[in-house]
Amino acid sequence: MKISKIISGFLIALLLATSLAGCTSTRTQASTGEYIDDSVVTSSVKALIYDDPELKIGQVSVKTFKGVVQLSGFVNSKQAADRAAALAKSVKGVERVDNSLIVK
């Protein structure tokens, strides 16, 4: 009886440890919280770009991973590319902006 309680306790602790490990992040995979934060950052950057009269959301793609925003697509001028990067940098939670926008 005593051994079965010890084994049960060990299995419960092991199950708890593995379930918590599923919520942590790795170098290539974001945790649940980081994923949600990245989604909020992406939405905020897209909203700023969409509301800017010089930029068009249909031509600019925004992706975020662990606070790093990747801008890609096409813009009409170097100033527009710089403006999109500046807007992205202004969003809370942005660690860095990788500006891969191409001037048409």
Rank of each mutant, 00 (worst) to 15 (best):
A21R: 03
A21T: 10
G22P: 00
G22V: 10
G22Y: 11
G22L: 12
C23E: 02
C23L: 13
T24S: 07
T24K: 02
T24W: 01
T26I: 01
R27H: 03
T28F: 14
T28Q: 11
Q29K: 11
Q29F: 06
Q29S: 05
S31P: 02
S31C: 08
T32E: 03
T32R: 09
G33N: 12
G33H: 05
G33D: 13
E34Q: 15
Y35H: 10
Y35M: 10
I36D: 02
I36V: 15
I36W: 11
D37H: 04
D38E: 04
S39V: 00
S39A: 14
S39G: 14
S39L: 09
V40R: 02
V41W: 06
T42N: 12
S43A: 15
S43K: 07
S43E: 01
S43M: 09
S43Y: 03
S44I: 01
S44G: 03
S44D: 15
V45Y: 05
K46R: 13
K46V: 10
K46E: 12
A47D: 08
L48S: 10
L48C: 01
I49H: 08
Y50F: 13
D51E: 12
D52H: 15
P53R: 11
P53Y: 03
P53N: 13
E54R: 15
E54S: 15
K56C: 05
K56H: 12
G58E: 14
Q59C: 00
V60E: 00
V60M: 01
V60N: 00
S61F: 02
S61Q: 09
V62K: 04
V62Q: 03
V62T: 11
K63I: 02
K63P: 00
K63Y: 02
T64W: 03
F65D: 06
F65K: 08
F65T: 03
K66N: 02
G67D: 04
V68D: 09
V68K: 11
V68N: 04
V68M: 04
Q70P: 00
L71V: 12
L71H: 09
S72F: 07
G73M: 11
G73F: 11
F74W: 10
F74D: 11
V75S: 06
V75P: 06
K78R: 14
K78V: 14
K78I: 12
K78P: 04
Q79F: 08
Q79S: 14
Q79E: 15
A80Q: 15
D82Q: 15
D82N: 15
D82T: 10
R83T: 14
R83P: 02
R83C: 05
A84P: 05
A85G: 14
A86V: 10
L87S: 07
A88N: 07
K89G: 07
K89S: 13
S90W: 11
S90I: 08
V91T: 04
V91Y: 07
V91W: 08
G93E: 11
G93N: 10
E95I: 06
E95N: 11
R96V: 07
V97Q: 05
V97G: 06
V97R: 09
